[in-house]
């Protein structure tokens, strides 16, 4: 499964520019599903038929990135963030555009580092004039962070673990599921990082009986970090709430029962900041019961997002069992 994870996280796909990653995922899931289609927002919807109620799964395939806002006469690019990206996380990093152009992040001279904002930074693509720059990029082009996958053994590190690790889990679960208890609409959503936009319309189109998002969550297990009772390696989480959703209590109970019945380790998650596709799914039409399984992840929204491989494998087991166990409401 590590090969699959590496392939997914190293593929380009910032919010709104998901073509390449969608192609990769399409190729991976095609053998294991009954139908595949892409909707107007670019969501990839994979249907695996099991009869009965509709279960919608949502893992977002978009990642954070930066967009070019202007190009100066010396060929330096100004930019702003696509999704929640901190200027501090960009220093010393590189980015790459859909056409392969690589840039490095630079910054103006500052009196104090705390004064750093994105508009004091620029991207250097190794040219010395606007004309030369325009041969490679134009205003509005979007770049992803450039960083390779790294297997530390027990832990895996890369850019875009948020949320390709969930895409990997969803693909793997589609491969492994034996007796689906639903018509499963496994959606690889777009534009999550800019406001849960793909999931919103996918849920409207599907109108599922229950929705479960798979995403990453923060942890409280690094030196002097904020209080949070989630650790790497103690299993996937059953989310209670985040900024976007108070998970439907009956769905949360169902998820806990499925985990317990199958001896899958899990943690309860209260995430104080951040949202997930479940927030959009739950508020669709006259309301959809919604829950979230999260994979604990350190250093979210940086070039080095870290997950625990056991959590990933347990996440696959958990998702397979959720696919095979009917929700009674």
């Amino acid at each position: 499964m590590k090969e699959l994870i590496k392939r997914l996280v190293e593929t380009y796909g910032p919010a709104g520019s998901e073509e390449s990653i969608r192609e990769v995922i399409m190729e991976e899931v095609r053998p294991y599903v009954d139908e595949l289609h892409v909707d107007a927002l670019g969501n990839l919807i994979a249907l695996k038929r099991g009869g009965g109620k509709k279960l919608m799964l949502a893992s977002h395939m978009d990642e954070i990135g930066v967009m070019v806002t202007s190009i100066d006469e010396n060929g330096f690019l100004r930019f702003y963030g696509v999704g929640g990206i901190s200027p501090f996380s960009l220093i010393g990093n590189r980015c790459y555009f859909a056409n392969g152009t690589v840039g490095v992040f630079g910054m103006e001279r500052l009196d104090a580092m705390k004064d750093l904002t994105m508009n004091k930074m620029f991207i250097d693509i190794g040219v010395d004039s606007r004309e030369a720059a325009l041969e490679k990029v134009k205003v509005g082009d979007v770049a992803a962070i450039k960083r390779e996958f790294c297997d530390l053994g027990k832990r895996l590190v890369s850019k875009a673990m948020d949320d390709r690790i969930a895409c990997a889990i969803q693909i793997e679960a589609l491969k492994q599921v034996q007796n689906p208890a639903y018509d499963i609409y496994a959606v690889f959503t777009t534009q999550e990082e800019v406001g849960l936009r793909g999931a919103r319309v996918a849920a409207y189109g599907i109108t599922p009986d229950i929705g479960i998002a798979v995403d990453v969550t923060r942890t409280g297990d690094t030196p002097k970090c904020a209080t949070m009772a989630v650790c790497l390696g103690k299993g996937p989480t059953v989310k209670v709430r985040d900024s976007s959703v108070l998970c439907t209590p009956a769905v949360r109970r169902h998820m806990e029962e499925v985990a317990k019945a199958n001896d899958i380790p899990y943690q309860l998650e209260v995430l104080e900041a951040g949202g997930t596709d479940a927030g959009a799914i739950q508020l669709t039409k006259s309301g959809i019961p919604a829950g979230v399984m999260s994979i604990p992840c350190r250093y979210i929204h940086t070039a080095s997002e870290m997950v625990d491989y056991d959590d990933v494998l347990n996440g696959v087991r958990f998702l397979v069992k959720l696919m095979e166990t009917e929700y009674q409401g």
């Binding site: 209080t227 009772a229 209260v270």
Partner: peptide, 17 residues
């Protein structure tokens, strides 16, 4: 309020709803 953590002495940390 919502409980976020139970510390090793049994005190509860919390956040707001």
């Amino acid at each position: 309020l919502m409980v976020t953590q139970i510390d090793d002495k049994g005190f509860l940390k919390f956040t707001q709803v």
